[in-house]
Design a protein around this nucleic acid. Structure first.
Lengths: 179, 179
DNA sequence: TTCTCCGCTGAATAGAATACGGCCATTATG
DNA sequence: CATAATGGCCGTATTCTATTCAGCGGAGAA
C-alpha cells in the first residue's frame, strides 16, 4: 500500500481514466461549481457522500485544477481584449519576457508553432493601455516585432470542457490517414 | 424604491464602481473560490456575513459572472491547444459558422481586427482531431482560409484578474498622446 | 468458491451559509 | 444646525450543508 509511507497518498499508479460519471460531474461543475453535493449527486445519480468522494478523487488526481470565480472584464475596467503575437531573436521565453506575467492584464502566455514565436492574451482598459503594454514589450530585450489582434466581439468563451467529439467527420474527398 | 415593483431588485442605478475591498475579494476568489466566507472575511478584514453580503452584491451586479471548476485538459484527453484564424467572404459570424460552438473542443470564438476575420481557441486530443476540426471549418460556407497556431508550451493561463496596472510606462522617446 | 478491495448508501456530527436585530457613520433634508 | 434616513457593518441564532463513519454488496483475484 502506498498509503503507509507517511499517511499521504503518494506514488499513485497514474490516475485511472475518467469514467462516464466523472465526466458528467465535470460537465456540471464547469458550468456551476456553487451547487451542493446533494444537488450534484442528484444530477449524476449518486448519494451526496459518493459525489463528494468522486470530486475529492478528481481533485487529488489533478483532473480538477481548482475552483475559481469568473468575473466580468468590464466590471474591472478591462473591456479591451487582444491577442498579441511576438517575434524574438532566438527562442524566446527569457526571464525578461516572462516578467510581463506580473501584469494582471496578461492572462495567457504561450509559445506557438507558426509564423511567430509567442502568443499573449491580454485585457486592457483601452487602446492607450494596450499601447503601454506593447511599449513595454518592445522594451524587452530580444523582442523584434509584435502583431496584435484586437477582439471586436466575443461570441463564445468558456473553460475547458470535459466532453470530446467522438468521431470527427472525414470529408468524403479526403484520403484516410495512414494511422 | 425599486424593490416595490415585484420584490426583485430592478432598475438599479448602474452598479457603483468597485472599491478596494471588492477588488481584494475578487482577487482572492479568482484564485480559489472554495474558501469559506469566514476565511474570505479574514483575508479582507470583514466579518463573515459582511463578506457574504459583498459577494452577493458582486453577483447581483454582474461583476461575478459565475463560479466554475478548472479542469486539466490532459485529464480529459485534450492536450493539444491551438488558435485558429479564419478568413471569410463578407463579415463572418453566420449561423453555420457559429455551429462549431457545439463542439466541446472549441473554447473561444471572437471576431478580430487584424488580417483575419475570426479567431478560435480550440483544444483537441491530437493533430488528427485538429485536422478533423479544420476540415469541418473548411466545409463551412463562407470560410475561405484558415491559419493555425499550435501551442507548444503554455507558461501562463489564468482567469480575468481584478487588478489593473495603474501607470503604464511611457518610453522616454515617445511623445505624449493628445488625450 | 472464498477472500479482498473498492465504491456506494444512510445516518450522525461538525461546520458553514444565511437570516436577523442592532450599532455606527455618512448623507440627505427640513 | 439639528435630525432623520440610509447603507454597511458586527454578533448571534438558526438552518442547511459538508464531512465522517459504519456497514453493505459487487467485481475481481487467489
Amino acid at each position: 500500500m502506498d498509503e503507509e509511507t507517511d499517511g499521504i497518498l503518494q506514488n499513485r499508479p497514474a490516475a485511472r481514466d475518467l469514467d462516464a460519471i466523472d465526466r458528467r460531474i465535470l460537465g456540471v461543475l464547469v458550468d456551476d461549481a456553487t451547487i451542493s453535493y446533494a444537488e450534484l449527486g442528484d444530477r449524476v445519480g449518486l448519494s451526496p457522500p459518493a459525489a463528494h468522494e468522486r470530486v475529492k478523487r478528481l481533485r487529488r488526481s489533478g483532473a480538477i485544477r481548482n475552483t475559481v470565480t469568473i468575473i466580468d472584464p468590464r466590471a474591472v475596467k478591462k473591456p479591451l481584449l487582444a491577442f498579441v503575437h511576438i517575434d524574438t531573436r532566438g527562442w524566446g521565453k527569457t526571464p525578461e519576457l516572462m516578467a510581463v506575467s506580473q501584469y494582471p492584464e496578461v492572462e495567457e502566455i504561450h509559445t506557438v508553432a507558426g509564423d511567430t514565436c509567442m502568443l499573449l492574451k491580454v485585457r486592457t482598459e483601452d487602446t492607450r493601455a494596450l499601447e503601454g503594454l506593447l511599449a513595454r514589450l518592445y522594451e524587452t530585450p530580444g523582442v523584434t516585432s509584435t502583431r496584435s489582434y484586437v477582439v471586436l466581439s466575443t461570441y463564445l468563451e468558456r473553460p475547458v470542457q470535459p466532453g470530446i467529439t467522438e468521431t470527427w467527420p472525414t470529408p468524403k474527398h479526403m484520403a484516410e490517414p495512414l494511422y
